[in-house]
């Protein structure tokens, strides 16, 4: 029990780093309603860019910002494939994910780059403090962006595309911007993760999309998602809760470390299925109640508008 508590700060730290990635997934999956698999590649792109720049003597902060930029480019390409190339959304993400595998190897030069003994953004200060600040600032900037005129049209693109087009938004452009911003955040997360673990690995992005989905869904299930401010906060907290669940799962004796991805998949399945069942049960109960009411009071009008 004590060792579990001791591992909590690490879990929270990791949860916060991954929260940036989860915010990216939130933009595509929730706001744009576009399941984007590019993130599996762009997470590694971010890690690779950060590591290579740092080992070549760049300032860690510059390297971190470059990681953000690299993700933005990758996302923009996915957006272009989908909107201008008219390729199915899921497929354009998969194509980019595969393409990024080779590109990431080119960036890193080899499958694994480590920066042991070289300064990262975490060298001189406490990891948790730095990560908390970066996540809060990013979250607030994202909230602000989503309330600008451009941000509103981005949200409307996922909510009612026909409507926002009739008011003059080029929804192809808003989609490209959204997917680009999403992958920029994912790559930023990858850049931070690589610096925290002092290494980038070609396979570090595998399964990231499911972790992102799990965070978004767990966050919504526990903390709700009424307004943008609360929705993004829920995503961040969801990412932390996810890490805590994983840390606890590691303690279960009959589970192996290699079961991690299976556990994640199960968490996502439960988080997706349970609300659907709850909703349909609630609906049925309400319908029964209303029809019983109408039967006992035939004068009363049903439903309203």
């Amino acid at each position: 029990m004590l060792s579990l508590l001791k591992s909590m700060p690490g879990a929270i730290e990791l949860g916060l780093i991954y929260a940036l990635m989860a915010l990216g997934v939130y933009i595509t999956y929730r706001i744009l309603d576009f399941p984007d698999l590019t993130v599996e590649g762009s997470f590694t792109t971010g890690g690779g860019i950060a590591m290579i720049l740092i080992t070549n003597g760049a300032s860690p902060w510059v390297a971190t910002i470059a990681a953000f930029g690299g993700g933005a480019v990758a996302g923009a390409v996915t957006g272009l494939l989908h909107t201008k190339g008219k390729i199915n959304g899921l497929l354009s993400g998969i194509i980019m994910m595969i393409a990024l595998y080779s590109i990431n190897l080119r960036i890193m030069g080899k499958p694994n780059v480590s920066v042991y003994g070289i300064d990262t953004i975490f060298t001189t200060s406490n990891v948790l403090v730095v990560v908390v600040i970066v996540v809060i600032v990013t979250k607030l900037l994202l909230d602000l962006f989503l309330h600008t005129d451009l941000g509103l049209s981005l949200r409307a693109t996922g909510d009612n595309e026909r409507m926002i087009r009739s008011f003059g938004s080029n929804t192809e452009t808003t989609k490209i911007i959204g997917i680009s911003l999403s992958n920029a955040l994912v790559a930023l997360s990858g850049g931070l993760f690589a610096q925290q673990s002092t290494a980038a690995d070609i396979s570090m992005g595998i399964g990231v999309i499911v972790v992102g989905l799990a965070s978004v869904i767990i966050g919504e299930a526990i903390f709700g998602a009424r307004k943008v401010f609360w929705a993004t906060l829920a995503v961040v907290l969801g990412s932390i809760v996810y890490r805590i669940i994983i840390t606890i799962a590691y303690r279960v004796e009959w589970l192996k470390a290699s079961d991690l991805k299976l556990i994640t998949a199960v968490i996502v399945i439960v988080a997706l299925v349970v609300p659907t069942i709850q909703k349909s049960l609630k609906q049925k109960k309400l319908a029964r109640k209303r029809s019983a009411e109408l039967l006992t009071d035939p004068v009363q009008r049903g439903g309203g508008q």
Partner: peptide, 10 residues
């Protein structure tokens, strides 16, 4: 409607 959408608050 029909105007550029920028980074000003909506």
């Amino acid at each position: 409607r029909g105007k550029p959408r920028t980074l000003l608050l909506g």
